[in-house]
């Protein structure tokens, strides 16, 4: 069995992103970049399935600029067997990414595609579901538990009301939630080994799909600031403010 793990290079989650001074977009100059945290969880899950003997190959794939090789190398150091870079200098939308991943899946004929539930840059939460629809295979989103039994997977999903478990036929799309697992750190020997693993590059134009932008970003601004508040001295002070000034309790 083979798992395909699409990962995305994004601004590190500790960075507070600001708009460019002309408000045309966000300012990504000299900010730290990382693997999207949800994609790290996806890599970890696939690697654990391999370690458990359930699957035998884990392929990481990303659509992005040549700089994304760095994140693919990290994925290889975390235990992926091979990596594919679909190279483009454009910042593509989830629908285009999904269309590209359709092609990669067709080439690789994977049994399981594990994605993050959302990329923390655009906060779109779309790619996995779109890929599932385009491939006409089942989806299990926001997974907090995954069990493979033969040709099926039992997936527990984090939903607003609590937890839901569904059974999907493989091949299927899984998207990861935060509590699926705790990703490991790459060890130094594994980082060294990862340098020798296979990393193929495909040019996006060779795939022959329409990746034209559908949505234009007109401007990017800071959200309205909250007015500075005050510190209260005691619980009774606080209760007084909430009862008598704000009248919220």
């Amino acid at each position: 069995m083979k798992a395909l793990v699409p990962i995305k290079r994004v601004v590190d989650y500790n960075v507070k992103v600001r708009p460019l001074s002309d408000n045309s977009n966000v300012d990504l100059n000299n900010v730290k970049m990382s693997i999207n945290p949800f994609c790290e969880i996806a890599v970890e899950e696939a690697v654990r399935l391999k370690e458990a003997g359930t699957i035998n190959e884990v392929v990481a794939v990303t659509v992005g600029s040549s700089a994304s090789q760095e994140q693919l190398r990290t994925a290889l150091a975390l235990g992926c067997d091979r990596a594919i870079l679909v190279e483009t200098d454009n910042d593509l939308e989830p629908l285009s990414i999904a269309k590209i991943l359709v092609k990669i899946h067709e080439k690789e004929s994977s049994d399981l595609i594990i994605l993050g539930k959302q990329a923390i840059d655009g906060d779109n939460n779309q790619t996995g579901q779109m890929l599932s629809a385009l491939l006409d295979i089942p989806q299990a989103t926001f997974a907090s538990k995954l069990e493979i039994n033969g040709d099926n997977a039992n997936v527990t999903r984090e939903i607003d009301g609590g937890l839901q478990t569904i059974n999907v036929k493989l091949p299927a799309i899984i998207t990861t939630d935060l509590r699926l697992n705790e990703p490991r750190y790459a060890s130094l020997p594994n980082i060294m080994k990862a340098k020798k693993k296979e990393l193929d590059t495909i040019n996006v134009s060779d795939l022959g799909i329409d990746i034209a932008k559908r949505v234009d970003t007109l401007s990017v601004e800071l959200p309205p600031e909250r007015d500075a508040g005050i510190k209260v001295e005691s619980v009774s002070d606080l209760v007084d403010k909430l009862k008598n000034e704000e009248k919220v309790i």
Binding site: V11, Y13, V17, V26, I120, G122, V220, L222, P223
Partner: peptide
Amino acid sequence: IYAGSCIA
């Protein structure tokens, strides 16, 4: 976008 750091 970006956890509400910016509004697009």
